[in-house]
Amino acid sequence: MKHLEDAVVTRNRQIRPGIWSMWLRAPAVCAESRPGQFVHVRVGRDFHPLLRRPLSIGRVHEDELELVWRIVGRGTELMAEATEGDAVNLLGPLGRPFTIDTDAEGRILIAGGLGLPPLVYLLESFRERWKKASLLLGVRGRDDIPLAEDDPLLREVEVVAERGDGYRRGIVTDPAAEWLTRREHDGGLENVALYACGPWGLVRALQGLIPANRLRRAEVSLEQQMGCASGVCQGCAVEVEDGDTPYRLVCTDGPVFPLHAVHAPALV
């Protein structure tokens, strides 16, 4: 069940130019949250900006959760202005989480840019049960990594940067393809679970990289303009090949969908 909860900011800081990380104490949301779910954040007290902002739940540590965002407008600016002790109203947890596949033998997590937070959450939940999962992150450059330089988690992420910047130069599908090739020769792909989150370009690239039905499971978390985040407004539709309708709602049917069922829009 979802909650309307006045969460309390415990930490809010800029971790990269224009990218912020906020930790909030939100016992009700945290108690029921699963990796892949999101919260709908009321950024102000009035109706300007009008709508809440949907953000993936990042790490959850006991009754605190992390949100990471890039400043793109007034709403995200207001979030950056919040300081310790401020209340931020959350609606959540919302949406369908990633499937925790207990029978999978290999787990690969692939993030593009700000698609990282839900996969970090997923990685940490895996770590509680299994020893290993690989988390790959593709960014343009060092400044786009949605983790602070001093964050110990950064050591567990394999970063690929288009500009290099001290990391492997390239795009995230390069190490993903290598990982899958290694796996194919060592254990096979049938038991592999793949989880992804990132821009449409990444979704399309992964669909091209991995033939449908080769993996045990391939899931992607999507983003879309959102109004209510509760299945009310029907505004966050995406094209998903699944059943009798061409559209599914990111807020309640997703945000996690089978990778190969999703149709990336033509104009992105």
Binding site: F47, H48, L51, Q224, Q225, Q234, C236
Partner: peptide, 16 residues
């Protein structure tokens, strides 16, 4: 009814 193709929303704050 399946509704219209996405995108279906554009926030023009404080309107929609």
């Amino acid at each position: 009814w399946k509704g219209n193709a996405p995108p279906r929303l554009a926030e023009v704050s404080p309107g929609l």
